[in-house]
Computed example of a mutant assay.
Amino acid sequence: MSDTGLTELVRMWIDGWVVSRGSSDPIDEPWGWTIDVGQPTHVARHVLPEPTEADVRKIAAATTAPGTWLKLFAEDEVVLPWLGAGWRHAGAGFLMTCRLKPERAQAPAGYTLTRWSRGGVTRVLVRTREGHFAARGQIARAGGHVVVDQIETAPEHQRKGLGGLVMRSLQSAAHEAGATTGVLVGTPDGRALYSSLGWTTRSPMASLWYEPSDAALAE
């Protein structure tokens, strides 16, 4: 995995992400891929593993649909100056990978853990003894790897090890299913958790979406 190029890693992430989210198959572009997502605030996304200023400016200039996203695998400070009015920065991200192995995943006192699989996606749910939502996450299989997605802990249950519990359960499930590699894109906050679980950062990622102002839409 350490010898895998960035473009291949990004494609591995995409292949699992579209399964996880039920999105369209990725469409090959000269600069990367386009994916139809089909949600009101996330209509489509353009993914550029090695973004250039010319490509980003061309895509941005041609974008008219609110809810169009850009995923640019580069530092924020490099790509943000290439984008004009109407583009919103969703924050920094990090492409990460790990070699999967068996993990111990036991819910702490006061919580229960449930795991199920359907349609190539395995989900983990952590609840309180009373049934209240505490944490969740999912993985999608694509060949010999899995993509980790939608890791979430309720604010009132954070800092109790539940994020680690979800990750270990998902990683173990992936290993049991025969996958050897995990891929994800995490936030700066999530990066610390994933690093503690053996994940390695492979690239930064800038995430942006198009949401022009009302004034711009009226022009």
Rank of each mutant, 00 (worst) to 15 (best):
M167G: 01
Y210Q: 01
P212W: 13
P188N: 15
E53I: 03
A74S: 14
G86I: 05
V147M: 13
V19S: 08
S117E: 10
S172P: 04
T52H: 03
V183G: 09
L197G: 14
L165N: 03
T7H: 07
I27V: 15
A154W: 04
T153H: 09
Q171I: 02
L48Q: 00
L9C: 12
D3A: 14
Q150H: 11
G164M: 01
R21L: 06
E8V: 15
T7R: 15
A173R: 09
T200W: 05
G164S: 12
K160V: 00
E53G: 04
S23T: 14
R202A: 03
E75S: 06
R129A: 07
A218P: 01
G198D: 00
S117N: 04
I139M: 00
V47M: 10
Q106T: 02
E53F: 02
W69Q: 06
T180Q: 15
T41N: 05
R99D: 11
T63K: 12
V18N: 04
V147R: 14
E152G: 03
E50K: 13
V18W: 08
V78F: 02
G131Q: 00
Q138P: 01
A142G: 10
V18H: 09
L83Q: 08
V47F: 10
L95S: 07
T7K: 15
L217A: 15
S20A: 15
A62C: 12
D15I: 05
G137T: 01
R115P: 01
H46E: 00
P30T: 06
L208F: 11
T112E: 07
K160P: 01
G198S: 00
A218C: 04
V43Q: 15
L70D: 06
E50H: 00
R129W: 02
R11C: 03
P81Q: 07
G143W: 09
W69F: 12
Q150S: 11
P102V: 04
Y111D: 00
S117Y: 02
T122A: 06
P81Y: 05
M205T: 00
L100W: 08
P51F: 05
S196M: 09
Y210T: 03
E50Q: 06
G164W: 01
D214S: 05
A206Q: 05
P212H: 12
